[in-house]
């Protein structure tokens, strides 16, 4: 369970998150929607401790996220997997090395011979052609890079999966694969997922719960079916495809 309580974060004089509180229950697929620049990505980075909040606290699986305490932070990060908005692959390493990276770094696989099967498994999961195995990221298409990025995150079997705009720049086929993947993760592994997105179709297809953020505040928190009938102006905009942003 991820509990976010009374989080406030501002960059300079710009208030991005203003007293935000919510929780992601175990096995839940939570979609956070909002316009571009409302601090959705910031929220994810706060959860994994890449940046520190001004006020409030976050706990992941009962453990407090404390940026000042590297040892505790490392424990929190071991439970989390974050898929960045951009692939963020190590461009000096091959696809195989990128996916195997976390496995090696966290010492998750004792026997080096077992790394390769794990990598292949993850590549199949994200529907990535295994012929790319020894390619470098800059030789891959954006979609393939993004798939590698997701495979890399899945490889370390996190308890909590965080996606930052997973479908941005993806073609409809890839988006469908991703939506299936999200459902499968919930169904088979009971992984808690938080997806930051502006893709209302994916959200309505996969989400257990939706949170809508506007001007640093939560303006809607509820199930997709309630979202469809919500009177919140931004919800209406999202439904009707008006003023779509990130």
């Amino acid at each position: 369970m991820i509990v976010v309580s009374k989080i406030t974060k501002s960059f300079g004089s710009r208030l991005v998150l203003d007293d935000i509180s919510f929780e992601a229950r175990p096995g839940e697929s939570l979609f956070i929607l909002g316009k571009s620049g409302v601090g959705k990505s910031v929220l994810l980075k706060l959860i994994v401790g890449l940046i520190a909040s001004d006020q409030g606290s976050i706990s992941v699986g009962g453990q407090k996220v404390d940026v000042e305490n590297p040892r505790l932070l490392a424990q929190v990060r071991r439970k989390c997997g974050l898929v960045f908005q951009f692939p963020a692959l190590l461009d000096s390493a091959t696809v195989f090395e990128n996916i195997a990276f976390g496995l090696r770094a966290r010492g998750l696989v004792e026997d080096p011979n077992l790394i390769e099967p794990r990598v292949f498994e993850q590549m199949r999961t994200v529907d990535l052609d295994t012929s790319f195995l020894n390619s470098y990221p800059n030789q891959l298409s954006y979609v393939a890079q993004k798939k590698v990025s997701i495979a890399r995150t899945l490889a370390v079997s996190p308890d909590y999966l965080l996606f930052d705009e997973p479908t941005t720049g993806m073609d409809p086929v890839a988006t469908a694969v991703l939506n299936e993947l999200l459902k499968k993760l919930k169904r088979e592994l009971n992984v808690t997922t938080i997806v930051v997105s502006h893709d209302i179709k994916s959200a309505l297809a996969c989400a257990d719960r939706l949170i809508l953020i506007d001007h640093g505040k939560i303006v809607f928190d509820g199930e997709p079916k309630n979202f469809k009938s919500s009177n919140v102006p931004l919800a209406i905009d999202f439904r009707e495809g008006v003023s779509l942003g990130k």
């Binding site: 980075k45 994994v48 890449l50 490392a74 990060r77 071991r78 989390c80 997997g81 974050l82 960045f84 908005q85 951009f86 692939p87 963020a88 692959l89 190590l90 461009d91 000096s92 990276f101 976390g102 770094a105 966290r106 990025s149 890399r152 370390v156």
Partner: peptide, 19 residues
Amino acid sequence: EIGSMKVTEQLDALKLLSI
């Protein structure tokens, strides 16, 4: 190299992979 790794969030990715 490190600057562009930071810009493309590779540094954050490393940190999240416990590196």
